[in-house]
Computed example of a mutant assay.
Amino acid sequence: MKIIFIGLLCFSIVLLIISFFKKDRVSKLEEDLEQLSLTYMQDLYQLKRKIKVLEEEMLIDGDLSTSDDFSMIKPIPVKRPVNEILKNQVLSLYNQGLSLDQIAKQSTLSKDEIIGIIENSRVKGY
């Protein structure tokens, strides 16, 4: 019995000594993960800095586009859908006898849009 106890004690001491010299896999994984997160943060910081530089360049280019060279270019009107309430307001103001300029001021629509609304209402028979 004493021999088994001494054998187990020696075996445990040997295992304890081996554990000090063996590399810990978990700590290696933690170090790799930490290095990866640092790399990710650095890349993210660089991307944000590049985006900021690009935005500043776009603002500078935007300021140049408002110079006199481009003042002759008219923007292309984009047709947007007009709300039914706004159509009814335009028709009501037209029926009251207001001019197209007055209707345009009150409804924030262009004259062409107002004319289109009035003509569509005539076609539909309102």
Results as ranks from 00 to 15, higher is better:
L59Q: 10
L64G: 02
G125C: 04
F5A: 10
V90I: 13
M41I: 11
L100K: 10
E56K: 09
Q96F: 07
L86F: 02
G7I: 12
E56T: 04
L44Y: 10
L86R: 11
V26D: 07
S92E: 09
I3E: 13
K87C: 05
E34I: 06
I114Y: 01
E30L: 08
S107C: 11
F21M: 04
F70D: 03
L38S: 13
L59M: 12
L9A: 15
P77L: 10
I6K: 13
V78I: 15
Y94A: 04
S107K: 01
K22E: 03
L44H: 08
I13V: 15
G7Q: 10
V26F: 05
Q35S: 10
S107M: 05
I118V: 15
S71A: 15
S92C: 07
D32Q: 14
D63H: 09
L91D: 00
L38A: 09
D43A: 13
K48P: 00
I17H: 03
D112Q: 11
D63R: 14
K79N: 12
E31Q: 09
V26P: 00
I73N: 05
D24H: 03
V26R: 08
Q46L: 11
L64N: 05
S37Q: 13
V78W: 03
D101L: 06
V90H: 00
T39D: 12
S99R: 07
E57M: 06
S67P: 00
L16K: 03
I118E: 01
L59I: 12
F5I: 11
S121N: 14
G97F: 04
A104I: 02
G62S: 15
M41S: 08
S27Y: 06
M1G: 10
S12M: 14
L33A: 08
V53S: 03
K111R: 13
V82G: 00
G7S: 14
S121Y: 04
S19N: 12
E56Y: 05
K79A: 10
K2P: 02
D69E: 11
G62W: 04
M1P: 05
V53D: 09
L109G: 01
K87E: 04
S99D: 14
I6N: 09
I18T: 07
R80Q: 13
V82Y: 00
E56D: 10
K124S: 00
I114G: 00
I13R: 03
D24K: 03
G97Y: 04
D63V: 05
E55L: 04
L91G: 01
L47R: 09
S110I: 04
K52I: 04
R122W: 00
K74F: 07
A104V: 02
K87F: 01
L109E: 01
D32W: 04
L93M: 14
I76G: 00
I114N: 01
K2T: 11
L29T: 05
C10M: 09
V14T: 15
E57D: 14
S12Y: 06
